[in-house]
Computed example of a mutant assay.
Amino acid sequence: MSKNKVLNLKDKIDGNEMDLSLCNLTEVPVKELAAFPKITVLDLSCNNITSLPLEFCSLSHLVKVDLSKNLMTVLPDDLGRLGNLQHLDLYNNKLTILPVSFSQLKNLKWLDLKDNPLEINLAKAAGDCLDEKQCKQCAARVRLGGGLREVEEIPQLLEDNEKLEKKKETKQREREAKEKEARKRDKAEEKERKRKEYNAHMAALAIQEQKNKRKEKKKRNGQIAADKKAAAESAPKARRRSLIGLLFKLLLLGLAGFVGVCQLTGLKEEAVCVPINVAVDDGLSWVREQKVDVRVRELVEEVDIRARELLQKLSSLVPQLLEPLGVVPTATEPVETVEK
């Protein structure tokens, strides 16, 4: 075929199918077809093909071939080399016999030989092919009979073949059942493994959580114990500080009261009050003479004011305290304030 015709073959391709029907072919373009090994379905129907070349038997990738409505009188002896062939349509040709190698087409499941001048034994073996079931039976009978056996032998061959097919199917089902059981067992083992891993993980988390709780409890108990210990240690100190503060306040109060008695009552001329009054007057005089910071002078002035207030309160209490003793206080001059 010319290069243009090769290109035309590409135009006849649809997926894995090539349609060369109604192309007025007188021979099959085997060399060109060999360039398309992915083609599994070939339609050569409605042409003027009289025979198939020997090279056609090398197209072992073919699964379905339609040669119906041609002029073929014979098929090549090596037709059995088409080991993948499952569907063969030879309807309305001029075939009388089939090659012996036809019995080698182990995968052939569908065959149509209607409207061919077959020999009587082959015609009886082929039977009719009016529906799917009959075409399948035709393929089985002709493949087993090879087109040359006596018709009487074919039923026995069919029975033996049916038994063999059933045996194969039984083995296939058993093998599939074993594979299914193995998959089921593997799945169950995988599920059990995952379950154990999950349980182990959860147990580890629980153990870790318990450890964390114990650590937290121990830490909390330790903190509580430390707080109690600190409280126990600080309580005596606080009590001691409180007691010391109370004594200091009482001492200051007593000293202030004593100074007030010596400054505001008639006892200031007594020998016991003379040194105290002198010390107070010297202190106030020293403060007046010092050039101190404004803040210190303000603080001293504030102390002086607070002292005067305290002395005035004490002066109101002193007569009441001395009256039971028969001592009559005399009026005194107010304490002199610190000058700024």
Rank of each mutant, 00 (worst) to 15 (best):
K340I: 09
K10D: 12
D282R: 13
R195D: 12
K187S: 12
R239M: 06
D66R: 01
V338W: 05
V63M: 04
L205T: 08
V338A: 01
L71Q: 10
V100G: 07
I13M: 10
R308C: 10
E301W: 01
S58T: 15
L157K: 03
A123V: 11
K187G: 05
A182V: 07
G83Y: 05
E152R: 10
V303P: 00
N4Y: 13
E153V: 14
L251M: 10
Q210T: 04
N24R: 10
D128W: 07
K109M: 11
A232S: 08
P99S: 07
P37I: 02
Q223H: 13
K124A: 14
K109Q: 14
E269I: 09
D112E: 12
N24F: 15
L310V: 02
F56I: 02
E152P: 11
A331H: 10
A279M: 15
C23P: 01
N16A: 14
K114C: 04
H201P: 10
L67W: 01
I39K: 01
V335T: 11
E339N: 06
L75K: 03
K163I: 13
V63A: 01
A271G: 04
E197S: 07
Q86T: 08
L250T: 14
E333F: 03
S21R: 09
V300Q: 02
L267Q: 05
D66H: 01
L95N: 04
Y198E: 15
K133W: 07
S45I: 00
V296C: 02
W110K: 04
A279L: 13
L33C: 01
A279Q: 13
N221H: 12
T73R: 02
V300K: 03
P76E: 10
G245K: 12
R185T: 08
M202G: 01
K229F: 02
G283F: 07
N221V: 10
L52K: 03
K167W: 03
P334E: 09
V259T: 12
K184I: 07
L310W: 06
K191A: 08
A34N: 09
K218W: 13
K168Q: 15
N121R: 05
L98H: 05
L130W: 03
R308Q: 15
D128S: 12
V41N: 11
V6L: 07
V335I: 15
